[in-house]
Amino acid sequence: MGLYISAAISGIAVGLLYGMIGFAIVMLYKSTGVANFAQGTLATLGAFVAWALVTDAGLPLLAAIPIALIASGMFGVIVYFVVIRPRASAGNLNITVRTLGLSLLLLAVMEWRWGALAPYRYPTIVQGDGIQIASVVLPAQTLLIAGVAAVIMVLLWALFRYTRAGLSFRALAEQPDTARLLGLRATRLSAATWGLSAILGTIVGVLLAPSAFLAPSMMESYLLFTFTGIVLGGLTSLPGALLGSVIVGIVSNVAIVAFSLEAGVLVVFAILLIVMAVRPQGLLGKQEAVRL
């Protein structure tokens, strides 16, 4: 029994990480209706930029990270104008496929620039022994991830709930044509959303790289868990993304100790399929409003 409790606790820790990747995807989906498959590579790129600032430019990590965040925000905006905005009326499927293409392109660029010597050891932001709960040890970096995930979720939730920009994002996501007709600056808002999601990606990348090891394809194996988590939570709900991801983390880690490591992935696939078939709006998501 103790083993299951420990596995569940370790599942919460890793689920928070899946959830943070999920935030960025959910935010973009909420405000533009596009599922961004490039989120993982954007995160990796951000981590590489911070890393290059440390190793090539000799900056301390805590100086490199803010610069990388700003750079990735600008890059997100550029991506919007270069990749997403041209012929934006082509429909969300078209745009979603563009994000897949972008992901492949970024991956190729990172392989070309950094791939030969990957993976790299990545500095942790905090060191320390962490804490022990049941028989599981939570290292300091894991506790930091949990804290950052909580802060980001609260900030994003407040942004969507209480600010004019957040309200505009939601209106734009629901009825882009009407939002424009009422005078919302759709282009500016969408560009801002892309910038923000790229920044979130970089935060995730920098936090994840010490344990996942920095390599161009670092995020790939996380995306299945993340997508399952956000589908489970409801694609449009930020708290849902976190809840769904934590559930995925717990269930897969408990399945691993109960059955086998392979069972962990099988269970996650099963969750994904069942949720999509039985409750497509997820746990906390809203049913799509019927459009006439």
Partner: peptide, 8 residues
């Protein structure tokens, strides 16, 4: 690898 991007 699980990511859809990878599959593609």
């Amino acid at each position: 690898g699980a990511g859809a991007a990878v599959a593609l």
